[in-house]
Design a protein around this nucleic acid. Sequence first.
DNA 1: CAAGCAAAAATTGTATACAATATGGCATTG
DNA 2: CAATGCCATATTGTATACAATTTTTGCTTG
Lengths: 241, 241
Amino acid sequence: MPSDTPLTPQSLDASFSLPPGRVLDICVRLQNAILAQRLKPGAKLSEDEVGEIFSSSRTVIRAALQALAHTGLVEIKKNRGAYVAKPTIINAHEVFEARTLIEPEVTRRAAKNITAEDLKKLTKHIEAEHLALASNDISKALALSGIFHIAIANIASHAVYSNIVQSLITQSSLIIALYAKRPDTACESHSHAALLEAFSKGDGEAAAAIMQSHLVDLHSGLNLRTLPVEQPSLAKALAGI
Amino acid sequence: MPSDTPLTPQSLDASFSLPPGRVLDICVRLQNAILAQRLKPGAKLSEDEVGEIFSSSRTVIRAALQALAHTGLVEIKKNRGAYVAKPTIINAHEVFEARTLIEPEVTRRAAKNITAEDLKKLTKHIEAEHLALASNDISKALALSGIFHIAIANIASHAVYSNIVQSLITQSSLIIALYAKRPDTACESHSHAALLEAFSKGDGEAAAAIMQSHLVDLHSGLNLRTLPVEQPSLAKALAGI
DNA sequence: CAAGCAAAAATTGTATACAATATGGCATTG
DNA sequence: CAATGCCATATTGTATACAATTTTTGCTTG
């Protein structure tokens, strides 16, 4: 069972220019719900409904939904409301192409800046990933895997890259949830461990190379030929099941 | 004198997930005002004031300001309101580093997709740039120069890159306005013409190389050692002037 | 019985009113 | 006279009420 809210407000606020106060809180909770697959792609996010759940007015909900729309987790259609984003195959390719271009460079920079303390934190993080995988908590492992990449971007001390990477990774989580051939393989923390070793040796080029092949692996581990299973409810009803 | 609104709503909406309807309109007008330097960095954007100018309620103004905050043109401080962003020197470096990484790749992709029609449009665009420069309309030339880069990103047919590039370029315009040693040199359309030639030859690698050196030139054309004239009030008071 | 239209319900877009927080000036006090 | 604390003012954060648009449903009509 998914233990709650792997992402903290701080982990976002660090590199994010988000609306202040309660809006941020709701952003985080919505984001966690989406990434944990409790809100499935395509699900409608009615302002009234969401507002009642979080016992807030539509005003703040709207702000949160717009913020999430900017990161690509939510799609807002004019006069038709907000929906959990359902990334297309093309979008999936684009996101991973962008990551493959940007994250190796970010990794190179992180290697220059990384401190002993950072290394310790990352080590603990990887342990947490193993734990989640061992207990078959896929959605948590997925979330932790994403946070690992975001942590590296933050170590790079480059706010612009951090913002870009954060947005790409949240989208990736959705994409992996939708398109991964075998979700558990997408969470493999082997590459993360290798990355850590390169970091500890201070070998930025090796780290960048590992990151690149890690992303290529993730990309090719997606099933981007057929559309994800969907629309079952209506079909089932008609089939008489 | 600046002829009005170089950016059209369409030119934004194409690659942007923005709030619908009137909010988008106000976003564009605010953005134009900021990029045209009619709103200077650090200027306060009071919701009431802006709302009265555009004769809209604070609700829609808030949405627009939040959207602009996401692109980095506006900074929102909790309980203190929105201000035109005043990019730091660090931020300036970061933005151009990111552009130097991303735009050459985008250019490479654009070279693969570019059509005869696209080439025609870009040619006309460069003519407009020359015209603006000839008539000493620096702010217009600057805006056009930005649009040129955005146009290339759109030709690349890569929505993710388009979004990133668009955000980086709007920030760049602010940065150039603040830090350019000689604003007119930042608008030089020579590189753009060279780019066009590479495109017409179908030479993607050459185009990418030109784009990269173009960006390096822009970056090194900035005066990023001294802060832009500001903060004088307190310093002067202490100095006794 | 199907198709098209019209009215009603629901949902989003916008405006306004109220509450909370920060700023600036003034008075009080040491 | 300077410094500090307090109150008035202004501005943002939030909630609610109204308008506009879309979607659904039921009716009429061919």
